[in-house]
């Protein structure tokens, strides 16, 4: 009984951290198959809130109070402000309809499974020295990052590509906080640069909308560098 009491807090710390990181991975898989734009945004918001919980949990367990700032930023910005802003943008631009997929759901799920196994095999193989707390968290984070890439590739819509990019960023922050004691300055600047990137993205989406009357990326592909013949006056 005494033994169980000693071990229990560590086990719980483990389980909760893995549970939260695992849920983020599940959210990444959901992002792959959601076909309505609002559902994509909601799933992303859920993932960001899970990230905030995961980061806060790390801060609590390892007594790193500065991680609470990171968690608060993830919760406020990525969990609430950005999804709401994107939501408004989608409504204003009138693009709330189904999202085209370049690859069908079954194949993108299989690709996702493949990438997840790759991430687990890769990270678990090369980090036998690190604590299992770190290495498993890192493996899950890499899986989230790779699934974000997959989403950016398979979704042919500017807004879903933004979401893909931000879910990559979620994975990066999960990895950064999993690596214990990484200086706060890095996380702050990451969050800051994400904001700038988002601003860039938003400006683009508006411009693309203005020029093409659509935010489908395929419209951009019709003009391809060298293959066009006419000059454009420069």
């Amino acid at each position: 009984m005494t033994l169980a009491l000693d071990v229990a807090p560590v086990m719980v710390a483990y389980d909760v951290a893995h549970f939260l990181a695992g849920m983020m991975l599940v959210a990444s898989f959901m992002l792959l198959y959601q076909d309505r734009i609002f559902a994509v945004l909601n799933t992303f918001a859920a993932q960001a809130m899970l990230l905030a919980l995961a980061v806060a949990w790390q801060g609590y367990v390892h007594h790193h109070p500065d991680l609470f700032i990171t968690a608060a930023m993830a919760f406020g910005l990525k969990g609430i402000v950005i999804p709401l802003a994107l939501n408004r943008m989608v409504v204003r631009l009138g693009i709330h309809r189904d999202v085209d997929q370049a690859v069908n759901v079954a194949s993108s799920m299989f690709l996702g499974l493949g990438l997840t196994s790759l991430a687990l095999l890769l990270v678990l193989k090369v980090t036998p020295g690190a604590s299992s707390f770190t290495r498993e968290g890192l493996a899950l984070a890499l899986a989230v990052i790779l699934l974000g890439f997959l989403m950016m590739i398979t979704r042919r819509n500017a807004v879903t590509q933004i979401v893909g990019f931000m879910s990559i960023e979620n994975g990066l922050i999960l990895a950064a906080t999993g690596a214990r004691g990484m200086p706060l300055v890095v996380e702050v600047s990451v969050a800051f640069s994400v904001l700038i990137a988002l601003f860039v993205f938003a400006v683009f989406v508006f411009r693309i909308r203005e020029r093409f009357d659509s935010v489908e990326i395929e419209y951009l592909d019709r003009v391809r560098g060298d293959r066009r013949v006419q000059g454009d006056g420069r």
Partner: peptide, 8 residues
Amino acid sequence: PNALEAAW
């Protein structure tokens, strides 16, 4: 359009 495609 070309500049936007390149930037994207």
